[in-house]
Write a protein that binds this DNA or RNA. Sequence first.
DNA 1: CTTGTGCATGAAATCGATTTCTGTAACGAT
DNA 2: ATCGTTACAGAAATCGATTTCATGCACAAG
Lengths: 331, 331
Amino acid sequence: MATIYEVAALAGVSPATVSRVVNGQRVSEEKAALVRAAAAELNFTPNRTARTLRRQNSEVIALVLPDIENPYFTSMARGVEDVARAAGYSVVLCNTDEDPAKEAKYLDIAISENMAGVVLAPASDHTDLQHLVARGRPIVAVDRSTRFDIDGVMMNNRQGGLSAAQTLVDAGYRRIACITGPRDIETAAERSNGWREIVTRAGMFDRPDDYLRYSTFRVDGGRTAMQELLAMENPPDAVVAANNLMGVGALQVLTETGLTPPAFGVAVVGDLPFTTLPPASVSIVRLPARHMGVTAARMLLERIDGDTQPARTVVLRNEIIPATSVPAPTV
Amino acid sequence: MATIYEVAALAGVSPATVSRVVNGQRVSEEKAALVRAAAAELNFTPNRTARTLRRQNSEVIALVLPDIENPYFTSMARGVEDVARAAGYSVVLCNTDEDPAKEAKYLDIAISENMAGVVLAPASDHTDLQHLVARGRPIVAVDRSTRFDIDGVMMNNRQGGLSAAQTLVDAGYRRIACITGPRDIETAAERSNGWREIVTRAGMFDRPDDYLRYSTFRVDGGRTAMQELLAMENPPDAVVAANNLMGVGALQVLTETGLTPPAFGVAVVGDLPFTTLPPASVSIVRLPARHMGVTAARMLLERIDGDTQPARTVVLRNEIIPATSVPAPTV
DNA sequence: CTTGTGCATGAAATCGATTTCTGTAACGAT
DNA sequence: ATCGTTACAGAAATCGATTTCATGCACAAG
């Protein structure tokens, strides 16, 4: 790798001048031309490590996510990446697996690598951002909120659970269950709260929570929860799945049991990009994943550029796309 | 951030001694204890940027992929990440969108950030690795090969196309089409070559390539290709999809048309992790995505640790899981 | 003609760690 | 007692860029 010293020597100027040319400071056109020629000849690219050390911040932002295998988060990642790239930043994707220890490690690395900022979907509501905040590193929370006073991009999760349940009520289902993620994950709790409100209002169950299952936010989590529900003495005739992967798991079990929609109603909070269902057989609450990523990245870039206004929280809208098919009338 | 100088001052030793303690060199137990106490008190973490600058290589490896939204690649990413993390490296995920320009930029960044190594799924077979190779940076190619003499982890793509087509022949389909990715992507070409060999051997068509469609390796690519095939004068009764997303697109179109398997035979080269199909209705060539990632990461780590043996290429096996349902007998 | 102002530029300090070089002390062998 | 070896630890050089500081020159104002 050619260094700035070699370029300086070839161009017959000092390293300071080369640096000025590279960074667009004032330099006489004459010397600038010499430097550009020398840089081109040696194929010079500034060493980012040295630059980062001196400037105390890098052109890298960390994107810390609980599950990169979930299309919801990859879609968000795309949004972040597109905005960051356009602004000259690259994005380090860090997978925490919902594990606070892994998350803590990645956040430490973000500090010690002098990264420009962090977009974080917290693994739990106990995530410790003390270090980051103390150092004044810009952070934006996405998808889930934190206990810290930082920027955030969220959506209305309760509303998502609400409209998912409501659309099933409207379609005429009588016993609507819910499967959701771990209790300590905010999105899981909120979405099931939305469901509970609807089924309670409809007077559907004596004890609604008998029809609520907590499991992992993954396909197998949806599968086991669905199997449990179907094994109940008085099983449900419809289900709200609180995230995309759980929805897939539930649908797999239903398909294997021969209970395809609309025989059994299904509403999912989250998009199902890679499924091959008949159109409009399942109600979908579309989540603005990419848009959240884009928004978070924009907010982060503003902070990196020195914006110091008080912390903001942006709440994006969901959109329900109801299934058009309805259940056969019950006897 | 506490620096090594502050720790040294607090412990009453020189910075060199602090560095030695941190890096496990010999230091008297007495001073080591002082240093550890001081480091703990100041919550010291070595600045990775400074370390990287001095050591000329970082504890970060780049994973450069054409499409992070494809579950095939995220699964591979998981494999890479798990191995890298266990060895103390973190992974920067870079998305190239199959665009050689973006790819080139990320590779340049990998150099100028002194990254420890690169795992690369090349966007095209013209990818220029000159710079990386000249600098002796370890690289491993995954999924697709390059023109350079570097380590690689591949699979037998022709075999994948072959067994996908064969399983449809065995099931009794008579006109088996193929939809594949861009011509200049090796995996696309090879998988369709496998298909061509089978349909040619079976004497299925006068001109097999009339039943071959090139499109993008994405869901909409599969959709348009499938629509074209169904609109043919003498349409196929089965199709080989050369990757997972194209398979999803094809299945979506078929479902919308009412042509669900086994009425129309479908074999996909690649797993369909998020689909909700009836079990065993579609033949799947399972690809060792995660395993490829694991293998590539291991090979890369060996190189980073100084292994200088000649370049190796590892070819992993595919496994076909045939559909169990068969078409209704044709008249 | 002198002084002041501004600009272009180079020398040198700086970022924070690692590593080489150097010196000292202790200990064993001769 | 002297020499050689080893262990330990500090001083200083180093990685490659950026940035501050200092210098010299040109030109305008007084």
